[in-house]
Write a protein that binds this DNA or RNA. Structure first.
Lengths: 200, 200
DNA sequence: TGCTACATGTAACACGTTACATGATTGT
DNA sequence: ACAATCATGTAACGTGTTACATGTAGCA
């Protein structure tokens, strides 16, 4: 019930693959889920304590003095299944790049082109990373029942990045058609405000 | 400096196109920027008051008694340019669908397929909406200096949705290859936990 | 010896949503 | 008269990040 935020899901999910310390869990989330998920220590530690109290994970001696390895329990696995079955809570969209492009007239066409090219370069970089990752995983985890599921998430990243590449080219063409004012600040059409200001 | 959240940017941006009441501003953000941005009243009202105190917007009499129309000032336009020029603060990724797919073995292949098909249906729906929107806007705003910029954001939405459609097909094929356990809950391979559970 | 990586945890803060409280105007 | 929509605002809450405080273990 208590819609405890999806941190619980990510934490239980991580431990469902492999018992770990909180620290390692964070690294795993960063490295493996990094392209579609993130958690900070400030979330992970309290969540693990709560899960321990609920009996969903158990604390064992860790690799170092004072460290703990967390192991998921049966009730934890059941809880994970429950959480995964909940409807997806879509995060409200907030795309800073598109916000800037939308008000591109004010920002200036030059800056917009720069932003677009940066986005494309980023996408191309990720594309290479996804390919490497997919190749490495397909070898390492050959035969793992998790592999096909993991590959779908990598595929998502790749298609998304490909989409960005194609989009940037189209967007640049659109801006080519109407490069009204290329200037950074000075001769920007600010007159709107003064015109509308007295409209009533 | 004061990285005042990008709400300020969206609010000034909205007013830069057209003076509005706070209420109308929220509707405009929902309807026009909806596919890549969102703001709630709880953000908009305090932000407008702050912007007024800083002289970036001015309050005029609104269309109703007790309502105010906000008009951007020259300093507001300058501030908007400044905000748009700031580096993009990327929101930490949180994709609930991919999280579920990654732990798809626990969720079950059937549910994963359902989620994928839902995602595809959503994408197809948006695709149609983007096309309508682009056609409508190209007519209505013909010649507007904002039009090409707005079209780039619609293009982004379209490419993103197309990417989802292509991805879902690929993902379904990946899951086809290794449909280890199709069962929802019962005979799921939970033995991991019991194995680890007594391992000490 | 001292740096780096491993490891745990908390407190302060920023951000944003939801729900609530209130009321005017328009249309039926 | 009443419902729907326009309109404003706040308070409580949840959630998540950052910075800080603390300490161990391995290695150069």
């Amino acid at each position: 019930m208590a819609r405890r935020s999806q941190t619980e899901t990510a934490v239980l999910g991580g431990l469902s693959m492999h018992p770990m310390t909180a620290y390692a869990l964070r690294e795993a989330i960063r490295d493996v889920l990094g392209h579609f998920w993130s958690e900070s220590f400030g979330q992970i530690y309290p969540t693990l304590n709560a899960l321990e109290q609920q009996g969903h994970v158990e604390r064992r001696e860790g690799p170092r003095a004072g460290s703990s390895t967390f192991v998921i329990t049966d009730s934890g696995t059941a809880r994970l299944h429950e959480l995964l079955s909940e409807p997806i809570t879509a995060a409200p969209p907030r795309n800073g790049l598109l916000l800037r492009l939308f008000f591109g007239r004010t920002l200036g066409a030059r800056k917009c082109r720069e932003l677009l090219l940066e986005a494309k370069a980023d996408a191309v970089r990720s594309l290479a990373e996804y390919d490497d990752l997919a190749r490495a995983l397909s070898e390492e985890e050959k035969g793992s029942p998790d592999l096909p599921y993991i590959l779908t998430t990598i595929s998502a990243g790749r298609h998304s990045a490909e989409g960005v590449v194609a989009w940037v080219d189209e967007a640049l063409a659109l801006l080519e058609d109407a490069p009204v004012n290329d200037a950074p600040v000075n001769d920007a059409p600010v007159n709107d405000a003064s015109t509308n200001g007295e409209s009533r």
